[in-house]
Computed example of a mutant assay.
Amino acid sequence: MAKSALLKSSLGKKYWMALTGLFLCLFLVGHLLGNLQLLSGGKDAALNFNKYALFMTSNPAVKLLSYLTYFSILFHAVDGILLAVKNKKARPIQYAKENPQANTIWASRNMAVLGTLILVFIVTHMVNFWSKMHFDENMPLQTITIENGGASNEFYVTTDGSYLPVSQFEQGILEIKNRTDFYDATAGVKMKEGYKDLYKITVAFFKNPDYGLIASILYTLAMVVLGFHLYHGFGSAFQSMGANSPKYTPFITNFGKAFSILVPLLFAIIPLYIHFIL
């Protein structure tokens, strides 16, 4: 009975909203640190980002955290919608002299709308990048071009730091199986593993002459929405969990405001940098 009340009551919903929201804030930081490698520039930017992508999709501990992240996103979204509906039903008739602007900020009054927009962004983001990384049979593998004696030769980059000539694959000496595994074509023995080139996919998406600019602008606007959502949600999460005291609340509030500006801003810089500078 107690467990049911914890899930169904408004207090319980706010508690779980806070927990999942704070967990997702940690995910944002980790995801941002990986994505910032796109801004590093230089010849190693692609390899560093693709190493990060491989680690995020192959490490067992990270996979477990990924499933927890998917659950948290869905639970946070559904719980938020149910809480908004429940609050609406609790007061179907508005007060005659209601003036919410005087007591609450705009973000707090529109958290459900902001959250819905973020959910739409997450879905489209996963379709364009996550799904390709996991399921696209035509996902390119990272290559590097090396100049030698006036001739240019292309090589596949392997996870052990060696290179395999693309010409050997064209000649049928080597072949690619399972999207990343390099095999001896004759013996059928696995030789090396390569990197899926998510860097190439990402850069091509935001630099696409047909929709790259629009995609970059929409991504940036999505980060503005995320910033407003975090601006209210970060501090509200701690308040819902009872962390509300004269000693710590000012710090939490100020940290939350800085977090809600800095993290979305850094995310927003990435597509703009790729489209206009890279």
Score class of each variant (00 low, 15 high):
269 I>Y: 02
98 E>V: 12
161 G>K: 10
66 S>T: 07
243 A>M: 11
259 F>H: 05
215 A>Q: 08
266 L>P: 02
7 L>S: 04
210 D>N: 13
221 L>H: 00
160 D>I: 05
110 N>M: 08
251 F>C: 08
130 W>S: 11
243 A>I: 07
203 V>I: 08
110 N>S: 06
184 D>T: 04
233 G>Y: 03
252 I>T: 08
14 K>I: 11
260 S>K: 04
20 T>C: 10
15 Y>P: 04
57 T>H: 12
27 F>M: 12
151 A>R: 12
130 W>H: 14
13 K>N: 06
223 M>G: 09
226 L>R: 04
10 S>F: 05
11 L>K: 12
29 V>Q: 09
105 I>T: 12
176 I>K: 13
126 M>E: 04
102 A>I: 10
208 N>C: 00
66 S>Q: 04
208 N>G: 08
37 Q>N: 15
4 S>E: 05
37 Q>M: 15
224 V>C: 10
144 I>M: 12
44 D>E: 09
157 V>N: 07
186 T>A: 13
89 K>L: 14
94 Q>K: 15
80 G>F: 00
156 Y>H: 10
80 G>N: 02
275 H>C: 05
151 A>W: 02
224 V>W: 02
23 F>V: 00
190 K>F: 03
124 T>P: 01
133 M>S: 13
196 K>L: 11
241 M>R: 12
12 G>A: 02
67 Y>G: 12
274 I>A: 02
276 F>I: 08
95 Y>H: 15
119 L>Y: 06
92 P>G: 08
17 M>V: 04
264 P>E: 03
69 T>Q: 14
205 F>M: 08
44 D>T: 05
205 F>R: 08
